[in-house]
Computed example of a mutant assay.
Amino acid sequence: MARQSISFTQPNDEWLKSQVDQKEYTTKSELVNDLIRQARKQQRQIDWISAKLEKAEKSGFTNLNKEQILAESKSLI
């Protein structure tokens, strides 16, 4: 496993420590790796949705473009 040295802002470091203190994770490294896994999974989902939107746009299924659909979906959150 690659070893890295990173710095956190005070609020982020406190949050990381609280997660470890609450026994959610055994170490900050475990937590950071889990956050990265989640971000990678989310990116795969975004890429999949984006590809589906492009396909729909090209097929004429929708009259909105990808950016409009994504903007509208974000406004619903």
Rank of each mutant, 00 (worst) to 15 (best):
M1A: 06
M1N: 01
A2E: 03
A2L: 04
R3H: 10
R3Q: 11
R3V: 01
S5Q: 03
S7A: 09
F8R: 06
F8E: 03
T9Q: 03
T9C: 05
Q10F: 00
P11V: 04
P11N: 07
N12E: 12
D13S: 12
E14H: 06
W15Q: 00
K17A: 12
K17G: 08
V20G: 07
V20F: 03
D21Q: 08
Q22N: 10
K23H: 08
K23W: 05
T26M: 00
T27R: 09
T27H: 01
K28C: 09
K28E: 05
K28F: 00
K28H: 11
S29A: 12
S29I: 08
E30P: 00
E30Y: 01
L31A: 08
L31H: 00
L31R: 01
V32M: 07
D34V: 05
L35F: 00
I36A: 12
I36L: 15
R37V: 15
Q38K: 11
Q38W: 03
Q38P: 00
A39Q: 13
R40W: 14
K41G: 09
K41V: 14
K41I: 14
K41M: 09
Q42T: 14
Q42P: 02
Q42Y: 12
Q43L: 15
Q43P: 02
Q43C: 14
Q43D: 15
R44V: 13
Q45R: 11
I46C: 03
I49G: 02
S50K: 01
S50G: 10
K52F: 13
L53P: 02
L53F: 07
K55R: 07
E57S: 15
E57L: 10
E57T: 06
K58P: 04
S59N: 10
S59H: 06
G60T: 12
F61S: 13
F61E: 15
F61N: 13
T62C: 14
T62V: 15
N63V: 15
N63C: 15
L64E: 09
L64A: 10
L64C: 15
N65R: 01
N65K: 07
N65A: 05
K66I: 13
K66D: 10
K66W: 06
E67I: 06
E67S: 08
E67R: 14
Q68W: 01
I69S: 12
I69A: 13
I69M: 07
L70H: 04
A71M: 05
E72A: 13
S73Q: 04
K74C: 11
K74M: 15
S75V: 00
L76R: 02
